[in-house]
Simulated scan of single mutants.
Amino acid sequence: MLIAVASKSGTQVDQHFGHAERFLIYDCAAGQPRLVAEKPVEKYCSFDPDHPFREDKFSAIVTALEGCRAVISAQIGELPKQELEKRGIAAITAVGPIDQALLAAHGTLCGCGFNCGKKSC
């Protein structure tokens, strides 16, 4: 199971979805999360509280997250969250160490612990 993480530091979930300039992609199926890719993206957020949905930037992010079952970020707006979920990507908010956030997200998505052997993992 692939899960994307919005992280500025590389060790913590510490970035808002719309502020991310990269997403770290982890494979969580092998018993321990393993970083498999870093996907650079253009920031979705324009820092304008009334900004409209920016389909072009959002679509580019979705393309970068291809194959991911979820994206974990410190915060995400309601509209981007709904749009991700329409595309089959769960939007999960968390803060703190990436490994702990991945464990919690994996358990939520799969209903198990790591390395359960299910095909969905």
Rank of each mutant, 00 (worst) to 15 (best):
L79N: 10
V36E: 09
A6D: 08
D56Q: 12
H51M: 15
P33Y: 07
T63S: 09
I89C: 04
K119R: 12
A6R: 05
K86A: 14
G77H: 04
V13S: 02
Q100G: 09
S7F: 12
A101M: 09
I76M: 14
P52T: 10
A30G: 15
I76A: 13
P49K: 14
K118P: 00
R54P: 07
I3V: 13
L79E: 13
K57R: 15
V5W: 04
N115W: 12
D48M: 13
N115D: 15
A74C: 06
L24A: 05
V13L: 04
E38Y: 00
G96H: 11
K57L: 15
A30C: 11
R22T: 07
S7T: 11
S7W: 08
T108D: 14
Q75Y: 10
H106Y: 05
F53S: 03
H16Q: 08
G96I: 11
L103R: 14
C121M: 06
S46E: 11
E78M: 15
V71A: 05
D56N: 12
K43D: 00
A4Q: 07
L84T: 00
I92H: 05
V62H: 01
F58H: 03
P49G: 13
D27H: 06
C116M: 08
K81G: 11
G88V: 03
P52K: 13
F17N: 01
F47M: 12
H19F: 10
K86G: 05
V5N: 07
C112H: 15
C116G: 09
G96Q: 12
K39W: 00
V36W: 08
F17Q: 07
P33M: 07
R87C: 06
A91H: 05
A4C: 07
V71Y: 01
F17W: 02
T93C: 12
H16F: 01
Q15W: 01
E85A: 09
V13A: 06
D48E: 12
E42L: 04
A20Q: 06
I25H: 07
F53T: 10
F47H: 15
E55H: 10
E85V: 04
C45M: 06
V13K: 05
D27N: 14
T11W: 05
L109Y: 09
E38K: 05
D99Q: 15
K86S: 10
